[in-house]
Structures are given as C-alpha cells and as structure tokens.
Amino acid sequence: MADLTRPLPFRSCAGRLTSRMTLAIETNGLTRYFGDLCAVDRLDLRVEAGKFYGFLGPNGAGKSTTIKMLTGLLAPTQGTMRILGQDVGDIEVAREVKRRIGVVPEELALFDNLTAREYLTFIGRMYRLPKATVRDRREELLVMMGLDSEDKKLTLEYSHGMKKKLTLAAALIPNPDLLFLDEPFEGVDAVSSRVLRDTLKRCVQRGATVFLTSHVLEIVEKLCTDVGIIAEGKLVHQGTMDEIRQSGSLEERFLEAVGSDHIERQTLSWLEG
C-alpha cells in the first residue's frame, strides 16, 4: 500500500513556467470534422498555467477529440493551438512540447508484451531521464498505483483499471508541466483514485497544469479550479469554480449549459400514474 502522505520525489514544477507564458493551453477556432460530422466546432480554449482545469461535456460532445488534437494524436481540420506558449503546428516544436507534457488518452497506449516495470523503464528512457531517476520514479509509481506486486504479469493480462493506472504512471514519470487526462478515474478503484487525486493536487500546487475530462461532476467539483463545458462540439461555458459556486452547483450549471429542458421531456408514458 502506498504512503499517501509521502510526496513524490519530483522536481518542483514551480518556476519552470516563465512569467511571460501565462496560458498553458490556447486554441483559436479549433475545429475537427469526421466526414460531415463536426465533432469540435471553432473551439477557443484558454487554460491558465498552474490551474486544475476540468473539461466537461455529455457523451459525444467532443471532449476526447479535443484532447487528441491538443496532444498531437489527431490533426485538426482548422484552427491553431499553442501549448505551453508554443505553436504546435510546427512538427519540431510539437516534439519539444511533448517532452513537457504527460498524457492519459481515452484509448490506452500500452505495449501488450511488456511488464509494468519494463514499460515505465521504456518511457523514462524515451524522455531521456537519467537511469537512477527512472529507477526511483518507476518504483515509487508502481507502489503508489499498487502495481508493484503485479510485476510478473504482462500488460496484456491487466484489467482495464490496472491499465489505466499504468498509463497514469507513464504520464507522471517525466514530471510534466502539463498533464492531459482523459477520464483518468474511469475503472480505477477507490483507493487508487484517492491516491491519484492527491498526486494531481500536489502537481498543481507545484505549478503544473492539469487538463482533465470526467463524467463524474463531483470529482471535477472537488478537484478543479477552472471548468470548461463543451456541448455538440462548442464551448458553451468557461470560468472558475468559484464563479460557479456563487451561482449554485456545478451540476446545475452543467445542465443549464447542455440543456436541462431535455431532462424534463424524458419520461416514460407507461410509468405515469
């Protein structure tokens, strides 16, 4: 069982972001079409550095498509993006930016035939971390995620939750300035979820930015400092959690943004008295 109070031996993120760069993510007119379907429609996101940003939306709203575009997994049809102050339209720049970001994609990114320890070693080396650093971080992450006893299993044999935790560990190992997490708590058990939330909070306290999507509004409400709501590919709300709390709960704001009248119409005729 991981020691929840012990901080990870990550170097401090604070101060690494220059004062000039206040926006960790900035998109202008970001659009993505799949055939005739417009999944993301002229998205103008502004995420300040050092914030815990919750990106919410109903199923099929365009959350994962947005994260894919921001992390370079999917090319936008139109629009520009600046990540950590850099224009990622340039391939070389994008590669350098990738060195400073960690990603947990919606569809996981693991090699079936490696063990968790081998996979984290591979990721650490690909980020050119010193051998001792890779070893230390890897072991701590494995303990923290409760995967240290599963070393004899290949990732192929992992459950969905275990795969998710390993992907999270891989995203954390380079100690990134910006974390993109697409539904990071989905399938993760309560204990690991708690550990993860604490870890993410610590990352933000140290100056890193977290961009998170989740269906669970309670998690977003507890963790996030800022919230963006997307519906049918359009950004329908963007603001701080404090602003939302002043005018009610996140759920109320969310339903209002995505259309609560929809709920009232959802009744079953044969259940009516």
Binding site: L73, R95, K98, P105, A109, F111, D112, M126
Partner: peptide, 15 residues
C-alpha cells in the same frame, strides 16, 4: 504489431 502501443510512440518526444 504495436497496436495500441503505437499511440504512445506518437506521444513521445523522440525523433
């Protein structure tokens, strides 16, 4: 042969 693992290769900051 990488299947989902290729996604990680795309995310890596490696030439």
């Amino acid at each position: 042969f990488d299947r989902g693992g290729f996604r990680q290769l795309v995310l890596l900051p490696v030439p």
